[in-house]
């Protein structure tokens, strides 16, 4: 028998701290697989966020910076400017990238900073216990929108990938989801493409990844993937939003 699926090499052995059924772990694995396939483990410097993914450095065996809340694109800019030949990427949640760190992500993209940002959107604040996120969908109940997100009171979800697509500095941006195997396989291809955009020095790349939060959505994991499909995808349509020129493979 041949091993056809195993833990990627650039992933550590440490069990992940994410709640049962949280699809963040899938994203951790996909990124590690892409790093392995591109053969860039020794040339990668990652920058982590504040939020549920704050411990992501425990699971990737690459050089790593732990940034302050929302500032990962600025930290990654500093890293990339010192090491322009290295692969530099950030991992950030919705609060990190689309609320407190909106300035940093927009200007990193506008500069055409040759980094890759991975944006995990689960439409809620996980680590702090289920408060409204900038990406909470309309009528979504959170601990700070107990009656559901009301557009008249707190407005609409932020569609960051669409916003970044209009910037000239953005070479590639896309939205994917990890709620079922078909989408997971697609997500991996897109993440790989975003890294290749950086390797080809084409400019800034970003992948928004829709992910579940069973704990704070108050749903069993199997129900949570359905909730994502029925509530998040209509608000955040999947697809490539900016493709500067097909990536040369």
């Amino acid at each position: 028998m041949e091993k056809v699926f195993t833990r990627p090499k650039s992933m550590t052995d440490k069990p992940m701290h994410f709640c049962p059924g949280c699809t963040h772990g899938v994203i951790q694995r996909l990124v590690a697989e892409v790093i392995d396939e591109l053969g860039i483990q020794e040339d990668t410097i990652a920058v982590g966020p504040v939020g549920c993914a704050v411990f992501c450095y425990d699971y990737w065996d690459v050089d790593f910076h732990q940034a302050s809340h929302g500032r990962a694109p600025a930290v990654a800019t500093g890293v990339k400017r010192v090491h322009p030949d290295k692969v530099v990427f950030t991992l950030q949640g919705d609060g990190d990238i689309a609320a407190i760190g909106t300035t940093e992500i927009i200007h990193a993209a506008a500069r055409g900073e040759k980094i890759t940002c991975l944006f995990v959107n689960n439409s809620i604040y996980g680590m702090t216990g289920g408060q409204m996120a900038p990406t909470s969908v309309l009528s979504q109940k959170t601990t700070t929108t107990p009656a559901g997100r009301d557009k008249n009171q707190i407005g609409y979800p932020v569609k960051l990938t669409e916003m970044l697509a209009v910037l000239d500095g953005t070479a590639y941006c896309a939205r994917v989801s990890v709620h079922n195997p078909a989408n997971i396989l697609k997500a991996k291809e897109v993440i790989r493409k975003a890294f290749e955009v950086q390797l080809n020095k084409e400019g800034f790349s970003l992948v928004e990844i829709l992910s579940t939060c069973p704990t704070n959505w108050g749903l069993p994991p199997v129900e949570a993937v359905k909730w994502l499909e029925n509530n998040m995808i209509p608000c955040f349509p999947l697809g490539e939003y900016k493709v500067a020129g097909e990536v040369q493979r």
Binding site: M1, M16, F18, G25, V26
Partner: peptide
């Protein structure tokens, strides 16, 4: 592919 904890290996 679906396992969020990379708890499954597959041989074929």
């Amino acid at each position: 592919v679906m396992c969020p904890d990379v708890a499954i290996e597959v041989e074929k």
